[in-house]
């Protein structure tokens, strides 16, 4: 476990040193995050120009939810997405050999190799939107609550990570699966709104198949004082189950890999 963290830290350090060569990218990323957030905030403004409450959510409660969504997707873009892209290329081109011969667990290595440092701007931007929303709501937020919130966010990241890796193991059977991710990314975008607003069939997808209902909603509940212990425990349970399934799938899948020139 300690070795895993040391290794992840080393990869992070490397990525950081590498990216520091391209500092202008920070500003490009900043601009792009601002555009995306600006668009989202404009939609919120347009909606709440018509009403006070949408499906039981006030403007700043919904803004808090969207801030959390941006933070969560920030983690996905910093780490999950680039690692999966690399994994898929490796499997297609046979360079996955180099992962297998290293004296470390292949799933672990495949999950920490790539870091896109500048994407962390999204986490800052999301936090700013969330912070502004919370300030407007004027709720009292305790230290414990913040702690639980961080736990809920991280467990949400784990859920998405597990799901994405679970799907990517399919690449060991069928090579071209990028298009499946298009569908997944589309569904994940539904996390921008609270799950209970959607029609029944989409709610079922968001709870059981692509559990954005847990990944985004639970942190939002905790930080807006709507949460309870059951919700958080359920979310942690979902994360554990997804991680376990992904682990089992990974083990089966890697056995199928036959190498490039074999």
């Amino acid at each position: 476990m300690k070795r895993a963290f040391t290794l992840a830290w080393q990869y992070l350090r490397l990525a950081f040193m590498n990216e520091m060569q391209y500092r202008i990218n920070f500003f490009i990323q900043l601009f792009e995050s601002a555009l995306a957030l600006g668009t989202a905030l404009i939609v919120l403004a347009l909606v709440y120009a018509q009403t006070e409450i949408l499906n039981g959510w006030s403007r700043y409660e919904l803004q808090a939810l969207q801030g959390i969504y941006v933070i969560l997707m920030g983690f996905v873009q910093i780490s999950v997405q680039p690692n999966v892209e690399r994994l898929l290329t490796d499997i297609q081109q046979g360079t996955f050999d180099f992962v297998l011969v290293k004296p470390i667990d292949s799933q672990l290595l495949s999950s920490i190799r790539e870091v896109r440092i500048w994407q962390s701007v999204d986490i800052l931007a999301g936090s700013a939107v969330l912070g502004h929303a919370l300030w407007q709501l004027g709720n009292q937020i305790g230290l414990v609550q913040v702690g639980l919130f961080v736990v809920a966010i991280l467990s949400g990241v784990l859920i998405i990570y597990a799901l994405v890796f679970l799907l990517s193991t399919l690449a060991f059977w069928v090579i071209r699966i990028e298009s499946i991710f298009e569908v997944l990314m589309g569904i994940m975008a539904a996390g921008r709104l609270p799950t209970d607003i959607y029609p029944r069939w989409l709610q079922i997808i968001l709870v059981y198949l692509v559990p954005m209902a847990f990944a985004v909603t639970v942190p939002a509940q905790i930080i807006t004082n709507r949460g309870d212990a059951t919700a958080l425990l359920t979310q942690l349970g979902v994360a554990a189950v997804f991680m376990l399934i992904t682990r089992l799938m990974w083990r089966t899948a890697v056995k199928r890999y036959s190498g490039a020139s074999a």
Partner: peptide
């Protein structure tokens, strides 16, 4: 095509 459907569905539902 399926992946692209969710963007309008979100707006529509809202």
């Amino acid at each position: 095509l399926i992946g692209m459907l969710f963007e309008p569905i979100i707006y529509l539902v809202m």
